Simulated assay, not measured.
Amino acid sequence: MFGIMKEYHNDLFDAKGEMNMTSKLIQITKFEKEPIQEIDSAYFNNYPIVYILYNESKKPAAYIGQTVHLQRRMKQHLSDTQRKPLKTALFIGNEKFNQSATYNVNL
């Protein structure tokens, strides 16, 4: 996945090809109302975000999506009974992303 991002966004990586982790690029949290509300919405709601909702139970499941309105979309997912088994949320985003970049990450 990161190889695809590097191809389109070389400025997100240092000279060694490693991802610049000093910016808010990746965030992992519990897929619950309170932790989701604590996400810096000013940062994550202004740019396209790719997200993965998943669990690691005996019957693993995942949902992959993208949005530019993170808080609103997570509120929809939290009220969706099909998403109840999912326990963890992973968000990938950066101010340098554009809509087409998220499609490449979302492969």
Score class of each variant (00 low, 15 high):
102 T>C: 12
71 Q>I: 01
12 L>I: 08
28 I>Y: 00
24 K>L: 02
32 E>R: 10
53 L>H: 03
23 S>Y: 10
74 M>L: 01
39 I>N: 03
12 L>S: 08
75 K>H: 09
64 I>P: 07
63 Y>K: 15
1 M>H: 09
20 N>P: 14
52 I>H: 07
68 V>F: 01
21 M>C: 07
33 K>T: 14
65 G>E: 03
68 V>E: 06
82 Q>P: 03
20 N>F: 08
10 N>C: 06
38 E>T: 15
103 Y>P: 00
60 P>E: 15
62 A>H: 13
86 L>R: 07
51 Y>Q: 05
47 Y>W: 12
30 K>W: 11
92 I>P: 04
17 G>H: 12
39 I>V: 11
33 K>H: 12
65 G>L: 05
44 F>H: 03
27 Q>D: 01
67 T>F: 08
95 E>A: 10
1 M>V: 08
69 H>Y: 13
52 I>P: 05
24 K>R: 04
31 F>C: 10
53 L>P: 02
66 Q>G: 12
51 Y>L: 01
91 F>K: 02
80 D>F: 11
39 I>M: 09
32 E>F: 14
21 M>G: 04
56 E>T: 15
53 L>I: 08
66 Q>C: 14
22 T>C: 09
39 I>W: 02
20 N>I: 15
19 M>P: 12
81 T>R: 05
51 Y>C: 04
52 I>D: 06
24 K>N: 09
38 E>I: 13
91 F>W: 03
13 F>C: 12
94 N>R: 02
1 M>I: 13
88 T>V: 14
14 D>F: 04
60 P>V: 01
13 F>Y: 11
38 E>P: 13
16 K>L: 09
67 T>R: 00
88 T>E: 11
12 L>F: 03
80 D>Y: 14
68 V>I: 13
77 H>T: 04
76 Q>W: 04
27 Q>L: 10
49 I>H: 01
47 Y>G: 03
8 Y>C: 10
18 E>A: 09
47 Y>R: 11
64 I>G: 05
98 N>W: 06
85 P>A: 10
97 F>A: 02
91 F>G: 02
98 N>D: 13
74 M>I: 04
104 N>P: 02
98 N>K: 09
30 K>G: 11
17 G>K: 06
15 A>T: 10
81 T>M: 13
23 S>M: 11
107 L>K: 08
55 N>D: 12
8 Y>G: 13
67 T>H: 03
104 N>F: 12
77 H>E: 05
82 Q>G: 14
88 T>D: 01
64 I>Y: 08
58 K>N: 10
4 I>R: 15
75 K>P: 12
94 N>D: 11
25 L>W: 07
29 T>V: 12
3 G>N: 14
62 A>W: 09
77 H>C: 04
2 F>M: 05
105 V>L: 12
40 D>H: 08
70 L>G: 02
76 Q>H: 09
91 F>I: 04
66 Q>Y: 14
96 K>Q: 11
22 T>M: 13
49 I>L: 03
29 T>I: 07
38 E>K: 15
61 A>W: 06
75 K>F: 12
34 E>R: 11
104 N>D: 08
29 T>G: 00
16 K>S: 05
5 M>F: 05
77 H>M: 02
90 L>S: 04
98 N>A: 00
88 T>M: 07
58 K>Q: 08
33 K>S: 15
66 Q>R: 09
107 L>P: 01
96 K>N: 06
70 L>D: 02
22 T>S: 13
3 G>I: 11
79 S>N: 15
17 G>T: 14
